[in-house]
Design a protein around this nucleic acid. Structure first.
Lengths: 204, 204
DNA sequence: TAGTGTTTGTGCTCACATTCACAAATCCAA
DNA sequence: TTGGATTTGTGAATGTGAGCACAAACACTA
């Protein structure tokens, strides 16, 4: 395929493929066809083939995709081949839940630091990590932490994002229900639970 | 505008508009133009005008949209004009965080029941609510609860979704990282935090 | 080595969503 | 009452992504 811009939607699906392939690997299956993978993920086979083909030809015609090496390729594409450290901002209820969430490890994420602005929480433990004062985010650059998960109220989110950007953070997962203004070099992905819930009654 | 199918993307944005309008209302502003609204939400003005126009002509040319009545119209469209009761399934860390999350109230959601399968948790309180045994979900229909938030591990999610559907649930917000198979009449919206985080390193 | 069955990789078409551009509608001031 | 300044509502154009259909490639058997 001659060079084409890789659709954002394709990138968004790559972690899906990686997780599915990890599961298939655990089950001991050596290869998987686009049809089988599509069944698991409730997608259409051509979608998966096209997505993967943007990054090269991983599959073998007549056989399918080799599970282990394709998973590894996707890890390389997504830069998940090296363990990624992330900072968690906000040690409230949501922050605590995220710190304990087991789902991040499949992708090699490690929540390496936790910050909060509540003096009463500083020094306490959250899992195996010590809660640090929010002012300590300036040290993130030295600690090679480039990712942050924002689990704080909307009112504080933008100011905090500004600090994170100054501290060299390159990617932010924002859980506050607000839009964050950041330089173009920084990527923000937002999750808004209330908005997601908000559309449900419409469809009932 | 003659009848046209309303795009899913338009529906997805309606709660955004509603939240923004609620804020503008609090600030005491009477009307708002598509340009002002677009600035707040980082969208383009024609997008907002087209989205709103699918449901009728709410605005006044030369002036803009009346804040209060447009918000009320959106509530009616989304069926958020009546308070919506939701059941929370899973009283773990994530479930506890969701039960305490203040963001749902803007849309009139009320978490009216909490369920778990851990006998040790049954009867304990989570906020003002008592944790009930998961078997009690069958009573949801009688209690007029048609929405559910799934905050349980993936392994249990499908079986639980099946029970919810049997109990008359019409909409599910799924926080487990898996696809749920449900009848077409039931709407599922999934949030996968690990997947959202998974794309960030790619853009760094 | 030839034939059969399977599955990938991809050009093309279609559907959907976003954005533009402009007429129609309204306000306000003189 | 008229003219200028705004802003909506929407047909048309543009952009983006999904899915089809088929040729190319490979495995396996005889």
């Amino acid at each position: 395929m001659k060079y084409r811009k890789i659709p954002d939607e394709t990138i968004r699906r790559m972690p899906m493929y990686l997780r599915a392939l990890s599961l298939v690997e655990q089950e001991g299956q050596q290869t998987i066809s686009s049809r089988q993978l599509a069944e698991r993920l409730h997608l259409k086979p051509p979608q998966i083939r096209k997505d993967l083909s943007y990054f090269g030809a991983f599959g073998t015609r007549g056989i399918g995709y080799p599970v282990v090496s394709t998973a590894q390729q996707i890890r390389t594409i997504l830069r998940l081949d090296v363990p990624q450290k992330a900072a968690l901002i906000g040690a409230g209820q949501l922050g605590t839940a995220i710190a304990a969430y087991p789902g991040f490890s499949v992708f090699g994420f490690d929540i390496a630091a936790v910050f909060d602005n509540d003096p009463a929480k500083i020094g306490k433990h959250i899992g195996r990590r010590v809660i640090e004062h929010i002012d300590a985010v300036d040290s993130l650059e030295d600690r090679a932490i480039r990712l942050a998960i924002l689990a704080i109220p909307s009112e504080a989110a933008q100011a905090c994002a500004d600090r994170l950007v100054r501290a060299g953070v390159k990617g932010i997962l924002n859980l506050a229900p607000c839009y964050l203004v950041v330089p173009k070099r920084v990527k923000v992905v937002s999750i808004d639970m209330a908005m997601a819930l908000g559309v449900l009654p419409y469809y009932m």
